[in-house]
Amino acid sequence: MASKAGSSPTIVDVAEQAGVSIKTVSRVLNKEAGVQEKTREQVLKVVAALKYRPKLAARSMGGGRSFLIGLLYYDPSAAFVGGVQQGATLRCRESGYHLVVESLHNDAPDIYNQVDRMVSALRPDGMILTPPLCDNPKVLQALRDNETPFVLLSPGQQPADQFSVRMDDELAAEEVTNLLISLGHERIGFIKGAPDQAASELRYRGFVRAMRSHDLSVEESLVWEGDFTFPSGVEGAHKLLSRSVRPTAVFASNDDMALGVLAAAQRLGLNVPADLSIAGFDDSSAASLVWPPLTTVRQPTHEMASVAVEMLIAAKGNDAEAATPQSSHRVLPHQLLVRDSSRALHSSPAPKKKA
Rank of each mutant, 00 (worst) to 15 (best):
E16R: 13
L270W: 14
K239I: 10
R243H: 13
K239W: 08
K38S: 15
A48V: 06
D227R: 02
S77K: 04
Y97A: 03
L50M: 13
R203C: 06
A279G: 14
V307N: 03
T177G: 02
V331L: 15
E310R: 06
F163G: 02
T39D: 06
A287V: 04
L180N: 01
D256E: 15
A355Q: 11
H346T: 07
F150Q: 00
Q141R: 14
A320H: 06
A5L: 12
A265L: 05
R59A: 11
V119A: 09
S277L: 07
V81I: 15
Q86D: 14
D196W: 05
D215I: 07
G236R: 04
S277R: 08
P9G: 09
P333W: 13
L129D: 00
R203G: 11
L171Y: 13
G260M: 11
Q299S: 10
F228S: 05
S342E: 02
V35Q: 06
A33D: 05
H238W: 11
L180T: 00
R243I: 07
L276F: 10
A58E: 10
A49E: 15
P137M: 13
P195G: 09
F150P: 03
T229E: 03
H98R: 13
T39Q: 05
L259G: 01
D275P: 07
A314G: 08
S200C: 08
S306N: 08
P325I: 02
Y112E: 03
S221R: 14
F80P: 05
V250P: 04
G70K: 00
A314P: 02
L44F: 05
G96P: 06
D227K: 00
F281M: 10
Q326K: 04
S242E: 12
A279H: 08
E174T: 01
E219Y: 08
P131S: 11
N106H: 14
D283R: 08
E321C: 03
L294V: 04
K38P: 00
G156P: 02
Q114P: 10
A264Q: 08
A322M: 05
A57T: 12
P231Y: 04
A308H: 07
V338Q: 12
K38W: 03
Y97I: 05
S253N: 02
L50P: 12
R123Y: 01
L143M: 14
Q141K: 14
F190Q: 01
I111H: 09
H238N: 06
V101F: 10
L99E: 09
S3R: 10
A264R: 06
A279K: 11
S242L: 08
G236M: 05
M118V: 03
F251W: 09
E32Q: 09
S26L: 02
I181H: 05
S154R: 01
R123I: 07
T89I: 04
W291D: 14
L153P: 03
A88I: 02
C134T: 06
A142Y: 11
L50A: 09
G83S: 10
H302I: 07
G64P: 09
V234H: 00
H334E: 08
M167Q: 10
P109F: 14
V46P: 08
G83C: 10
A142K: 11
V84Q: 06
N271D: 15
S182T: 00
N178D: 12
L133F: 00
Q85C: 12
L337A: 07
L216G: 15
V297L: 09
L104C: 13
E235N: 11
A194H: 01
D340M: 15
Q141A: 09
E37C: 00
C134F: 05
P351I: 12
G206M: 10
L72C: 14
L241S: 14
S7N: 10
